[in-house]
């Protein structure tokens, strides 16, 4: 049975048609016995059928493709275009996070993201590697805002990686990072904050984290 509603499928087809100008590669990483892998695979399959330029490929977590992308956990999704921007989804991109998946695909397909000039400029000046982990749950309406910013920041600067981590699929990880409320954002392992922040505030946290 299809997961997506017909009306949503129609809406997405139209939006993809409008926005996608470049090929979008959706890489899915799985392993045997992985609890939510089949679900994520089905979500991605249904989405990739909505536009001819969305190309889904499926890889094992032990594959070379996984190594070059630094993927060690499953289920994992990478969205890339002409290059790997550092956009990652770990766990199930459903519920409110489905929107983050869709918008990530559209950003890469459009080749641009909606960030202010000021934000782009400051992100461009960052010369250190940044990994932004955003812990979420699928029932959290405040979470996609944080995920979107992490992914858009990753899109703009190649040194930045933006990772959505759906906490329910990775309870040990959530535990290790002391996640008890979402969204929780962890930048370069050390710096963290809770809650959804607007673009300029989120940017300040990133700059603070890298000692800028």
């Amino acid at each position: 049975m299809a997961l997506l509603r017909d009306e949503d499928r129609e809406y997405l087809k139209k939006e993809f048609e409008k926005k996608i100008r470049n090929p979008v590669k959706v890489l899915f990483f799985e392993k045997e016995g992985c609890e939510n892998c089949d679900l994520v695979k089905q979500i991605l399959t249904e989405v990739s059928e909505l536009h001819p330029e969305i190309h889904l490929s499926i890889h094992d977590v032990e594959s070379d493709e996984a190594k070059t992308h630094g993927i060690e956990l499953t289920p994992a999704v990478v969205i890339e275009g002409e290059k790997d921007y550092g956009i990652r989804f770990y766990g199930v991109p459903a519920g409110y996070e489905f929107n983050s998946l869709i918008e990530g695909i559209m950003d890469v397909g459009a080749g641009e993201v909606e960030l202010s000039e000021e934000t782009r400029k400051k992100l461009g000046e960052l010369d250190k590697p940044v990994v932004i982990k955003v812990f979420v749950t699928t029932g959290c309406p405040y979470c996609p805002g944080a995920v979107r910013l992490a992914h858009m920041f990753a899109f703009v600067n190649d040194r930045i990686k933006g990772e959505m981590i759906e906490a329910n699929s990775f309870p040990e990880l959530a535990n290790r990072y002391g996640v008890y409320a979402v969204p929780k954002v962890i930048i370069n392992e050390e710096h963290s904050f809770e809650g959804s922040l607007p673009e300029s505030e989120f940017l300040k946290e990133v700059i603070k984290a890298v000692g800028g």
Binding site: T137, C140, Y142, A167, N168, Y180, A181, E194, G195
Partner: peptide, 18 residues
């Protein structure tokens, strides 16, 4: 303790209290 045990959204944070 907001985010460290204090929460205002059950649908968001319930899974952390299994």
């Amino acid at each position: 303790f907001t985010g460290k045990g204090v929460s205002y959204c059950a649908t968001c944070d319930a899974p952390f209290y299994k």
